[in-house]
Nucleic acid binder design. Sequence first.
DNA 1: AATGAATGAGGATTCATTCAT
DNA 2: GATGAATGAATCCTCATTCAT
Lengths: 193, 193, 193, 193
Amino acid sequence: MPKLGMEPIRREALVKATIAEIGRARSLDVTVAQIAKRAGMSSALAHHYFGTKEQIFDAAMRKVLAIYAKDVRKLLKKAKSPKERVEAVIHASFASANFEAAAIAAWLQFYVYAQTLPSARRLLQAYLRRLRSNLLVGLRPLVGARAEDAAEMLGALIDGIYIRAALSKDKPDGAAAEAMVRGALEHFIAGQD
Amino acid sequence: MPKLGMEPIRREALVKATIAEIGRARSLDVTVAQIAKRAGMSSALAHHYFGTKEQIFDAAMRKVLAIYAKDVRKLLKKAKSPKERVEAVIHASFASANFEAAAIAAWLQFYVYAQTLPSARRLLQAYLRRLRSNLLVGLRPLVGARAEDAAEMLGALIDGIYIRAALSKDKPDGAAAEAMVRGALEHFIAGQD
Amino acid sequence: MPKLGMEPIRREALVKATIAEIGRARSLDVTVAQIAKRAGMSSALAHHYFGTKEQIFDAAMRKVLAIYAKDVRKLLKKAKSPKERVEAVIHASFASANFEAAAIAAWLQFYVYAQTLPSARRLLQAYLRRLRSNLLVGLRPLVGARAEDAAEMLGALIDGIYIRAALSKDKPDGAAAEAMVRGALEHFIAGQD
Amino acid sequence: MPKLGMEPIRREALVKATIAEIGRARSLDVTVAQIAKRAGMSSALAHHYFGTKEQIFDAAMRKVLAIYAKDVRKLLKKAKSPKERVEAVIHASFASANFEAAAIAAWLQFYVYAQTLPSARRLLQAYLRRLRSNLLVGLRPLVGARAEDAAEMLGALIDGIYIRAALSKDKPDGAAAEAMVRGALEHFIAGQD
DNA sequence: AATGAATGAGGATTCATTCAT
DNA sequence: GATGAATGAATCCTCATTCAT
């Protein structure tokens, strides 16, 4: 009798292996065989479950974004004030399991990947929209009409820190990253127009 | 005697074609044949002049960084005050010929490439150091001991804007980008610690 | 479960095809595609099983030497006297399945190959040592201290006959070849110093 | 005004460079560019003078055989007796400028080359015939009807020694080689049928 | 469910050879 | 006479993907 319910297990193993492998290679030049091997199965099985390599990548990207989204939701729930809301979003960006060398590397790769693949682009844009809207909700009470600009700026800053973390050989420093964004937030709030 | 002095012409054509082709593909998955074709020659000739694909990429990356460096130098010369120095660096980042769809796309690809290739990493890190030091010279008189943090933040913000511009389908808006960074600078200066 | 146990079959087919193809081309300028085609598979599969062309050649060379070594061992077992031992070695050299047009041609090619490739050189030198030592064991009782010279001479003579057989268009004549070496042996034994 | 009589100079330089380059590579896998560079000219010029690579190789092979033939002729002139004739041929084989690492390597390569290229085969067979006939003239008075066999055997032995010298990493020892062939000759003469 | 077997398509690289000057 | 310029044709090798079992 066949093992039942293997599908979700296999799929998850593959997704995890994909992120790890991309993190290791620091590039999307990763073969299905490598991913499958790390996931403990044959590449034929990987295709059986996902169809194409593209779909494996898609699922992996979805996973990275989902981890982040979940962290944000959790933190937002505890936020008591507008400012705490904004800080929650910032905190989630760098405290998440995603702010870890391999995941950051994978993140950057997916960013690039989104340039080429429409489905990946959609995913990434959804993330950007959500990030922006999460920031906006908190920022409006704080800076009013300047909230749009503030959200844009904070979002870009977060992405910039990510990209730099990806390049650096040092272990990513989430606290420092968070401090930098919070500083920018403070200055923005303090600044008059 | 044969046609002479083609080498620099061919090399430049290849470098230009490489950037254009990477911009078009929005990926480093570009074949030497594609590059050579766009540059109007056979792939064999491309290898004749550059040896390997890696060296072609290297030259293209060097070119992108060189364009930026030249723009910065030019603008810095005209700067009359510390603040003008910082603004010159910011302006160069977005006014340069590099802030144009294809070049931005190529820029992002090289950022990623630097994760893998040591030679590319060195190039990029040199760029980052120069950017930072250029900002620092202007920032020290303005914000004193906080200059380091400011430089770090502005640098990350610039990179973040780049990465977002790379993802966007719209034509990159240099003016808006510049305004955002200048805004952050103003707020940083105004902010108290 | 898939078709199983193809690997040894494929590998053997490839080795055989390699020898045949080198024999046909009378040169090592044989493409993996040609070999694979003769072996009835795609070149990709050949690479799948052997990795590189060099390793295919290595295996083929090993095979040629192994055939010879096996023949020698078999004949040596039946030898009842020192002289029969020497004759067994000689006989094996020319009666072996290797003394056949294609194999001789391949042999010569490998001899040349050994000049360039360290691994091939090691294989060939091992063969030469074994040949020498096999001859020595039989020769010592027959010619005493002159055994070393005799072994050297007989070995060179055998190789010389091989090389000439490789050049000739006629079907190799094992009997004649053997007679020539036996003659040299007789004269060496008869000769006084 | 054009330089006159460059042709023979260029041709000779190329032939010499070819032998040297084959000796260095210990293989015929030598590019026209390498040969031309060593000869101090462009590969285009090499083609200008020889037409094809094949013809360059042919000329080089011819040269190697010509050196040997000349040496033999010179030594044969001084020979006073049949035995001295045979010894002259043997001596020439190993004393010639050809019995030197690079030339031996080239020799072996050409031997192999002759398997493929008809023109090379003709050259080599002419050499073999001449060697044989030179030996026969001296051997007939010495061993009568057995001269044919003796010539065949000595020829094969000489070739065998060459092939082994090619494989060895040590500097070729002409004296030892000659001693071995002379020994075989002595034994052959001494041997009774 | 799972995988070894198998391949077509593609890509970097090399090189003999030709040609215009 | 001489050569830089240029290319077409090959060749090794990789890899996503399919299939039979």
